[in-house]
Nucleic acid binder design. Structure first.
Lengths: 335, 335
DNA sequence: CTGAAAGCGCTAACAC
DNA sequence: GTGTTAGCGCTTTCAG
């Protein structure tokens, strides 16, 4: 075995008695090489354990074949599923995932530095919040970007989003069947764009339908915050008839808190709805009424858009909105 | 703005009136440049929007600064936490994560091709199963690798693992307090090394302590498989006194199935234990007795080992085993 | 401390 | 169809 140093296309060429570019051609699909040379090259390449060096290729083709995927810690609980889909679907398009996790605003500068230096072909941002000046940088550096699960008002960015409005409308309609007199909206954190959007839509719709008794609390999307919020609220206030949570995880927290510490029956005395359709929302012990996001299709849309913009630098920005599915669970009374 | 093409170190050099290597030096930390040149270069670089091209750097330094992280779909439910930790801790060591997801054995060939061509500095495999010949390839290609949550008998590979034996010993001791007469071991899938290890350890320990009535069922680590297995079992058999699940998710499934369809009380009539300590195992409605994996420390160990082997090619293979924490939940009766 | 020069391993014209 | 040649953008000796 030739293990002492990395074997290059030159080494293979010499050994096979062909030119270096012949070797290169053999390993670039779709280039015309005679079967004879191809076989000869392949044979010696295998013998020598040769693998083309993607780095060198990137340098010359100016395509890294890598897509930066940014995951913020504020991401929904369904992000593992999303990430796995993203990885799978990008792989199918012959792109690799360069993963970045974003903890707090502090890391953003560094993150962007990395993105530029690594010459990624594109960026998919999962539920992260970026200032609009940040988004402008992508354009300056000519790096296509798709925001997943975000709805940016000014339509200069590619976005893919679940239809929050329609979803929340359906959830509220479901709640209305029981004619609730008081609502509690349990919002996600204010630094999450998705949370803000869901909250505002809910408040807006409730207002439009003339509801007077609507209160808002702020959690941070976690189970514990769901528990804490409702516990805190019930210390000084009567139980609301309906609780509208910005995600399933908080809804689960609410349900557990009620079960443990309060003599309130869900759904008979109180209705709870969530959002996302995460795996545990379907578990027997919770069975939350929620909107299931069409994750696979959302990711497909995101990947399609990104590839389109990578291949065609001046295609116009696009926003795609997909509709989720109402899941009628047992956290809202059914007649 | 100089936006028409990527600006290179030559462009900056020309503009700043210095040599190209001067620019290079400025952007390589720890190299001696006079403050005057440094300032001048920095200023024009910023003005022109210059960013060093990491690809070119990789080509010459033969270090990509990337670590391949392989996630298999068989990974435990705690993988999001693990992945997030891995990403964070590698970032702290100035490495980027190139993420690969592995669905089935079919993709392995392709995966390995990618790993070689992308010249990654190292590999962390999360709960994936590789044949030993595969592992040998890493050595041939001189790519350091750390297996996370695997215990390979032949000690020629770097591994980091939670102490399954001690954990399961503790869980069984906890169960013993109620003097169970019959055990059901609910194993994960046979193509998961972790699952096999946990099952065998449990069976072994039970045998050693003289238990006669021990049955085994095979799930696939999912919630639904937990439900299905126990439901199937109870159709034809009496309820076991103790159920030992290979992960928390299946334990949750067991609990939910029992709650919905059987008149059996947990923990009074039946005890259930899990493994992993995933977030939902602590939820009020489950509170599983389980072993919480020390994820942060496990990842730290993995990353430390990997970096060590990247920097020091001939450090010897190492296996680190960390001990988990027994969580005394409510799925086992407490006296 | 600085600049000149030689590549890293490969791709992409371009002749033959 | 194949070989020759000129780089991609950077790091790294090596003189000065």
């Amino acid at each position: 075995m030739y293990k002492n140093k990395k074997v290059t296309s030159y080494d293979v060429a010499r050994e096979a008695g062909v030119s270096q570019s012949a070797v290169s051609r053999v390993f670039r699909p779709g280039l015309s090489v005679s079967k004879k040379t191809r076989d000869k090259v392949m044979a010696t390449a295998n013998k020598m354990g040769y693998r083309p060096n993607a780095i060198a290729r990137m340098l010359i083709t100016k395509q890294s074949g890598m897509v930066a995927v940014i995951v913020s810690s504020r991401a929904n609980e369904n992000y593992p599923e999303v990430l796995s889909q993203v990885s799978k679907q990008l792989a199918a398009r012959n792109k690799r995932v360069l993963l970045f996790t974003l903890d707090d605003a502090a890391g953003v500068d560094d993150l962007f530095e990395q993105i530029w230096t690594f010459q990624v072909d594109g960026v998919i941002a999962l539920a992260a919040h970026f200032e609009s000046q940040r988004l402008a940088q992508f354009e300056q550096h000519k790096v296509p970007v798709v925001l997943y699960n975000r709805n940016v008002p000014d339509a200069s960015t590619n976005t893919v989003c679940c239809n929050h409005e329609q979803g929340i409308k359906q959830l509220l309609a479901e709640l209305k069947l029981n004619n609730p007199q008081s609502y509690l909206v349990l919002s996600g954190p204010v630094d999450s764009d998705v949370a803000n959007e869901r909250r505002e839509i809910a408040l807006d719709l409730l207002k439009k339908s003339g509801e007077k008794n609507v209160q808002v609390l702020y959690g941070d999307y976690t189970y514990q915050s769901g528990r804490d919020c409702i516990a805190q609220w019930l210390k000084k206030n009567p139980a609301p008839d309906a609780v509208v949570c910005s995600n399933d995880t908080m809804a689960i927290g609410v349900i557990d808190e009620i079960r443990e510490n309060h003599n309130i029956h869900i759904p008979n005395d109180m209705s709870v709805v969530g959002f996302d359709g995460i795996a545990s929302s379907f578990w027997q012990s919770y069975q939350i009424t929620t909107i299931k996001q069409p994750v696979e299709q959302l990711v497909k849309a995101a990947v399609d858009m990104l590839i389109e913009h990578i291949e065609n630098a001046d295609s116009p920005p696009e926003a795609r909105v997909l509709t989720g599915t109402l899941i009628k669970g047992n956290s809202v009374k059914r007649s």
